[in-house]
Design a protein around this nucleic acid. Structure first.
Lengths: 120, 120
DNA sequence: CAAATATACATAAGATTCTTATACATAATA
DNA sequence: TATTATGTATAAGAATCTTATGTATATTTG
């Protein structure tokens, strides 16, 4: 049973951003299950970001343990799905995380695209 | 000797971006020493990103070990400074890292600012 | 002048996040 | 019938960072 996932490894830059991505997608879509999240991210990034199960499932479990997500199990086509959605706390926290992400992106752009030196 | 660094912890989002930041600053400024890098980053981000020594110095040593940085020791005011600059390999690699950063930022923005749903 | 702060480098222990490799199971496709 | 797709899960190890130190000199402040 080979896993031919051809796991291209993601840039180190994505490290630390998974929780924010999950929460934003749940805010956007109401409820989603793990596999669906991986596919959605792959689609949105045109295949550039591939979330691995080894990263995703522990992250979901942790967010649930922290009270930011609620889970609801469904059986579809005889296969199990665990649907996650934001709790009220999770919704508030999502606002903070997205604000942090905006700051982060702004700061990184300042570092990488410094305002051009004036020449006389 | 209290360490009143009031180390506010940086968002997890910055995890993985330190190498890119260092390399970009060195590309920009030719040569810099560690402490100078921390101050420069703090200034550019208006105090929002504070690089700790515990993260910075190991990162510099690793980049040097990988052949991306060269080091040159100077003594200024009886205090030691270790100036780092990009090697030729480091300069080429910086181009790649910055390209990765652009992709990363673009992908994060796609995830967070999805094109608005059309309403009819 | 003594104490605190700023400058300057360094490392070790532990936390967190992720990759890689598995494991199990069903459905659909080649 | 073998592979791929769908679906969840965890364990070992890698990589990166935080926190807490340690050492040392220069400058500023009370």
């Amino acid at each position: 049973m080979p896993r031919n996932d051809k796991k291209m490894k993601n840039s180190q830059l994505y490290k630390g951003s998974l929780n924010t991505i999950i929460m934003k997608l749940l805010e956007e879509n109401g409820k989603m299950y793990g596999y669906e999240i991986t596919q959605k991210v792959k689609a949105i990034t045109q295949g550039e970001l591939n979330i691995t199960e080894g990263a995703l499932y522990p992250a979901l479990h942790k967010l649930e343990a922290e009270g930011l997500l609620d889970v609801e199990i469904e059986k579809v086509d005889n296969r199990m799905r665990k649907y996650y959605k934001l709790t009220e706390t999770g919704q508030k926290e999502t606002v903070n995380r997205l604000s942090e992400l905006e700051d982060f992106i702004r700061n990184m752009q300042s570092l990488v695209n410094p305002s051009p030196k004036l020449e006389f």
